[in-house]
Design a protein around this nucleic acid. Structure first.
Lengths: 213, 213
DNA sequence: GTCTATAATGAGATAGAC
DNA sequence: GTCTATCTCATTATAGAC
């Protein structure tokens, strides 16, 4: 008889928890942490509110779990993409940034509602100092790996400069995803979401920063 | 006897209202629309909650008033800066973007808490489709004026492309202001907030987009 | 693990005295 | 215009039956 400290959760339990996290993801993304109501999450997941507490522990913890779950998946994809890129031997700045950005944009555009929601979620998290620890935990490892790769291409560049380029690039990517309506408004409609344009912007900006010093 | 439809507000009333808007600005900026409590605004302004309702009309209206007030001031500064730049004759892309960005960054860094708060406020507003109308009203006129000027430099560029560059640039500016802690973390601390670096990034990115087509 | 009922708090809004 | 008291509602969290 196995006497582990905690019983392994049943398949049913895991499935319920996943449904709750799925719902939480959508609601948190749309309304932010404060604006989201556990009741709405429960309704969307079709479970009683009590269950949201049971699996989520607390509102804050549920939020963190939600972010962590998908961030882990995202990090995995990004690291694997980078490895694959390294094997092709084409380690230009453009290729590295495209690798980083494409991994996400493609999922946001074709991966369904949950990945699109994740874009808004990340925007909430990474713009609020309140989630600094969560941000560090979820995003920094991957970001650092890419940063290292980029710095290899520009041995004279300083890391703070590259870090700035990285943050600016990510913010442009998030704007691309979340503020498409703004681009449409200013440009008189008719934006055919161009990934290439975004990567071009980031690469040129990044390059200018790195070779400036 | 003057029988205007509404009595002119007393000096005392105006001063109270200004205090409420000042407080609202800080609280909304820090916690977002949903997270902000009218009670906290009242406490910070040192007035009873009832007064916040009286002057604010409703939470949503108060939020809009808060944004509008400072956005109007900002727009005024930006337009005047652009006029001044035109008189110097140096209408390079770099100069135009620097003009747009500097007007804000300088205020955020030296204009006190309220202008720093405004940065976060704008980030909230322009990333949430919920405030689309407010965004259009407050930011589009100024953004369009700058966009027109930029398009004069690149007669072959299309407006949607330039609009994308504009939105990416603004997002980078907001990241510079609001996510400085991220840059510090990734770059191993020690960021000496460089305005020049930001403008360099935006200009190079913008230029690449515009001359790509 | 699942679910119901309820507690405890805090919110925005309003009516009416001064 | 200013302020107090109060209403109504929605929220998170918890206790305890199944």
């Amino acid at each position: 008889m196995n006497t582990a400290r905690k019983r392994a959760p049943s398949a049913r339990s895991l499935e319920t928890k996943a449904r709750i996290l799925d719902a939480a993801e959508l609601v948190f993304a749309e309304r932010g942490f404060e604006g989201a109501a556990l009741r709405d999450i429960a309704k969307l997941a079709a479970v009683p509110v009590g269950l949201v507490h049971h699996h989520g522990n607390s509102k804050e913890d549920l939020f963190c779990q939600t972010v962590r779950r998908r961030a882990a998946e995202m990090a995995d994809i990004r690291i694997k993409s980078l490895e694959a890129l390294k094997e092709t031997g084409d380690l230009s700045l453009y290729a590295i940034l495209e690798c980083f950005i494409r991994a996400y944009i493609i999922l946001a555009e074709t991966g369904g509602d949950h990945w699109r929601a994740y874009g808004r979620l990340v925007a909430h998290v990474s713009s609020d100092p309140r989630w600094e620890k969560l941000t560090k935990e979820c995003f920094d490892p991957t970001a650092s790996r890419y940063l290292d790769e980029i710095l290899k291409l520009y041995p004279n560049a300083k890391r703070p400069a590259a870090a700035a380029g990285q943050v600016y690039s990510v913010s442009a990517m998030l704007a691309h995803l979340n503020s498409g309506w703004r681009i449409d408004a200013l440009g008189n409609g008719h934006t055919e979401t161009e990934l290439e344009r975004l990567v071009t912007f980031c690469t040129a900006g990044f390059e200018a920063i790195l070779s400036q010093e």
